[in-house]
Simulated scan of single mutants.
Amino acid sequence: MSSSAGFRRWLMASLMLLAVVAGCRRAPKQITLIPITTGVPLWDAAHAGAVVGAASCGLGVHYNGPARDDDLQGQLTLFDNSRRGEYAGIILVPIQAQALRNPVQRAASAGLPIVVIGEDLGIRRSNVAYFLSDERLGGQMAADEIGALLHGKGAVAIMGLDLNRSSSLERERGFEAELSKSFPGIQVVGRRSGSVNLAQEQQIGQELLSLPVQVDALVALSAASTRGAYFAKLNQADPRPLHIVGFDQDLLMPINTGEIDAIVAMRTRQIGKMAAEAICAGVRGEPMKAGTVVQPLLVTAANIGGAEVADELLDRAWWDERKE
């Protein structure tokens, strides 16, 4: 047997083996969802929605986020690992938009479908989509609720402003613009930046309640500041009527008791579903819609027990377990 014939047989066998290996290499079966943190209603609802959306194209969802909602380095590491892993796409809720912009740009440049929730990173590519809550409208909703609660007169303080998040700034701008336009008899007497530390937020709430002018209402622009406002109210040395309108559905139960008047909630279940469906479109090679803005939902005592709140914001099974 000539050496050339043996080489040809070896070459054919090698090519067949490579074909088998290539055939066994599976396409990615999961989308990864990286929220700001896990274990909270705000983002667990997005997970529930994403599972439904991903199922439309036969994909699952890997849900993993930092243990703390201020762990930026942890989120950067999770994103980098996901970018290098075998995922069909990434859904990201950035802790800090500026810090995540370049990593998202690199991943998108490699062709990976990416959906960003809550912040616009300014990256315009066919495989990058944004799903945003209408934060300015949310601010207007909060102002209208405060106007009704105070009957158009009184003093309000704002807490929880995050200068690093455009969504927080939009909430504040929408609130103050609507308050000035529709309720000139209500004055903003204090503004405070916020943090994710509950003790600090409670202290900020207590400081606002100690201002020389009596504060009739607190508007809390984040989940942490809503909790801070709530605990500041509970710990007043001289309890007096105080209205609270918060943001983000981390603390809903006190609405039933009247200790919180309203929460401007993100429709995160709906957003999660649409985000996963957008990844499915990207997997199919279709252009992903650049941006979608979703109207928030005002949760009050009048609608908290209704189907819309349970269906829009939370997984119903999870919601029913929490009520028991």
Rank of each mutant, 00 (worst) to 15 (best):
S3D: 13
S3Y: 13
F7C: 05
W10P: 00
M12S: 10
L15F: 15
L18P: 01
L18F: 14
A19D: 03
G23I: 03
R25A: 11
R26K: 14
A27D: 06
I31C: 00
T32E: 08
T32W: 02
I34A: 04
T37F: 10
T38L: 02
G39P: 06
L42S: 09
W43A: 00
W43Q: 04
D44K: 00
D44H: 01
A46T: 11
H47C: 10
G53M: 06
G53H: 08
A54G: 00
G58S: 11
Y63E: 07
P66W: 05
R68E: 07
Q73R: 13
G74T: 06
T77M: 11
T77Q: 11
N81K: 15
G85V: 08
Y87P: 01
L92N: 01
V93K: 03
I95M: 12
Q96T: 11
A97N: 09
A99T: 05
N102R: 14
N102Q: 13
Q105K: 06
R106H: 06
R106S: 06
A107M: 03
G111R: 08
I114Y: 06
V115P: 12
V116S: 00
E119Y: 00
L121Y: 04
R124A: 14
R125Y: 02
S126C: 03
S126E: 13
N127S: 02
V128P: 00
F131W: 15
F131A: 10
G138N: 00
M141R: 02
M141I: 12
D144C: 03
I146E: 00
G147I: 10
G147C: 10
L149Q: 11
H151Y: 11
G154Y: 06
L161D: 11
R165P: 05
G174H: 01
E178V: 10
F183C: 08
F183W: 15
Q187R: 15
V188P: 06
R191Q: 07
R192I: 12
R192W: 06
R192M: 09
S193Y: 08
S193I: 15
E201C: 08
E201I: 04
G205H: 06
Q206H: 11
L208C: 09
L208Y: 08
S210L: 05
L211T: 04
V215S: 03
A217R: 05
L221G: 07
L221R: 12
S225H: 09
G228P: 04
A229Q: 04
F231C: 05
K233H: 11
A237F: 06
R240A: 15
L242H: 01
I244Q: 00
V245W: 10
L251H: 03
N256V: 13
E259D: 14
A262W: 08
R267Y: 04
R269S: 08
Q270K: 13
C280F: 04
C280W: 04
A281R: 10
V283D: 09
Q295P: 00
L297C: 05
T300P: 01
A301G: 14
N303S: 02
N303F: 07
A307W: 10
V309M: 01
E312S: 11
L314V: 01
W318A: 15
W319Y: 15
K323A: 13
